[in-house]
Design a protein around this nucleic acid. Structure first.
Lengths: 139, 139
DNA sequence: GTATAAATTATAATCATTCTAAGCATTATG
DNA sequence: CATAATGCTTAGAATGATTATAATTTATAC
């Protein structure tokens, strides 16, 4: 069992039509879709697509570091094909998740380095997105 | 129906023994427990405790703004009785969630204010906590 | 082309969370 | 006090997201 895993560790990602369809949908997608969002769209074009395949592919890509799994939505996992450093705002009115570029200076407390090994960070902003803001005529 | 709701809107939180047991467990608790964690401990002392009561109480407290629901753990909701502004580190080795004080200067991009109404933010740090760091003899 | 590991599929299983309906406890009312 | 109203608790069923299973199919290397 372990041997099988080891043996195949270096095997490259098989490019099946289902995976290509998922990858194509994700490519450049900034909507932070859930597994269901992806399934709904991709299964329309790709008749026999199974939900399990969506999850399998998402997990494989996430483990390979080519996809980011977001925990910002308490109801379900969301996926972000943009793996560059950036943050997110979740609109508390419509639930939309919006990218926030990382031009934010985060100064970490000096004593943190003594206690923790820091690998990364992610900022969740809560607020009203621009379209909700317009709808409500805020400001 | 609406009238009934309205009538009771101002009703204060009833201090039942079950709720008191949950509150007591949460008081000063910095372990960021899940509903199950809470149920496990509290139901030991309080025989008849139901899982639903734990969830009901947690949701009521959260809605009342007296408890913070954390989404940092992708597997389950975690709860934090400390509602003051602070952030969290999740140890990628042991899964523990640790409080990070808010003495962090976060400078938001200037143009964000033009696009969004910002209500708050929360930083998720990823890293190795101090006990895992010691175990691994890091640094 | 063929073997073989890996991917897909449908379906069942699991796990966290919410819902439901019945009974219980507390408080307000007469 | 009695009684009604309200809200709380409970067990268990229901839901929804995600993962596991097992049989079948497919991609890739030889």
């Amino acid at each position: 069992m372990k041997q099988i895993q080891k043996k195949n560790e270096g095997t490259r990602f098989k490019r099946t039509p289902q995976r290509l369809a998922i990858l194509e949908y994700l490519e450049g997608n900034t909507s932070h879709p859930s597994a269901e969002d992806i399934f709904r769209v991709v299964s329309k074009r790709y008749q026999s697509m199974s939900f399990a395949t969506v999850y399998n592919t998402l997990n494989t890509l996430t483990r390979a570091g080519e996809l980011r799994e977001l925990t910002i939505d308490p109801e379900r996992k969301r996926y972000d094909p943009d793996i560059s450093r950036h943050h997110h705002l979740i609109c508390v009115l419509c639930g939309k998740i919006v990218d926030i570029p990382e031009k934010i200076g985060v100064e970490l407390p000096k004593d943190m380095a003594e206690h923790f090994v820091l690998l990364g960070h992610h900022i969740e902003f809560y607020g009203h997105c621009s379209s909700c803001r317009k709808k409500n005529k805020e400001k």
